[in-house]
Amino acid sequence: MNQTKGNIMLGHGSGGKMMHDLIENVFIKKFNNNILTDQTDSAILNSDLDNIAFTTDSFVIDPVVFPGGNIGKLAVCGTVNDLAVSGAIPAYLSVSFIIEEGFPVEELEKIAESLAAEAQKAGVSVVTGDTKIVNKGKCDKLFINTSGIGFIRKENISIGKGSKVAPGDFIIINGTIGDHGMAVLNARESFNFTIHIESDCASLNHLIKKVTDKHEVKFMRDPTRGGVAAVLNELALKTGFGIEIEEDALPIKKGVKAMCELLGFDPLHIANEGKVIMVVPESDVQSVLEILKNDTLGMESSAIGRIVTEHQGRVVLRNQTGGSRIIDTLSGDQLPRIC
């Protein structure tokens, strides 16, 4: 396909030349590496470690382009982060596109470009992929699935499970919460707010490695859908311990806070795409914070709470006024209050 203008047509998913050209020009060229250019049905991966981490995620975000990123960048960050927070070093990605008939090729190219750029930044290779085109109305513009493979050392396998977490451990987050969810909501809805909020969408594997190279991290998770509240509740349930969070210690951007106040949302329930929650022993807190704060992706890091023996299986927030309340996971979508 020589032209980058025009729209995606059903023919682009036919398996014929149109599809071949589309894949060749839009994807292979951009994700270029030896394994992918082999174009075999299954990628054969080299491994020099015992354990392989494997994950998959689908991205169906509306709008596909939002302040701070787009669905392509997000598709890399999401899967890279899922591997990284499991304690793995992300290495390979697969990328599958489901594209709605009529989608502009130019826009697809931009998305593929930022997907490729993010993959390069994260140091992962896109080694296999698939493209399907569906009739107009059968999907919303563009869906992307990415699967990822990473390598994980034996001593890090407990990180995803949190099996070493104990009372007294501290909970750290690498920056402001709720940025992604609010950036997307603000871009999607016609609020006409004058504030500009950018998604925090970023690959965290390098940042995480800096910490895990030097410190014991007992648990890690990226607080995406369901926000910080969902991750902490899962951890509390998993370990049986209680969790106490200090409201004062939660880093929240002014604009995000204002939007949450207006809509009646709780920032703890809003999605993030460039944040990691780490549980570390008390002795390591300062040093971990220092490492995080020296990185552009962790400048606003904060120790937000700790693991406690009280209120087992629950997350309790101590607020600025001295009161406390239970933080639950969200039941369904967060619904705006009407007044």
Partner: peptide, 15 residues
């Protein structure tokens, strides 16, 4: 209802 929210969110009853 907004008042009810504030009372519980900030734990005002306990004060």
């Amino acid at each position: 209802g907004g008042h009810t929210m504030a009372i519980h969110r900030f734990g005002l009853n306990s004060l």
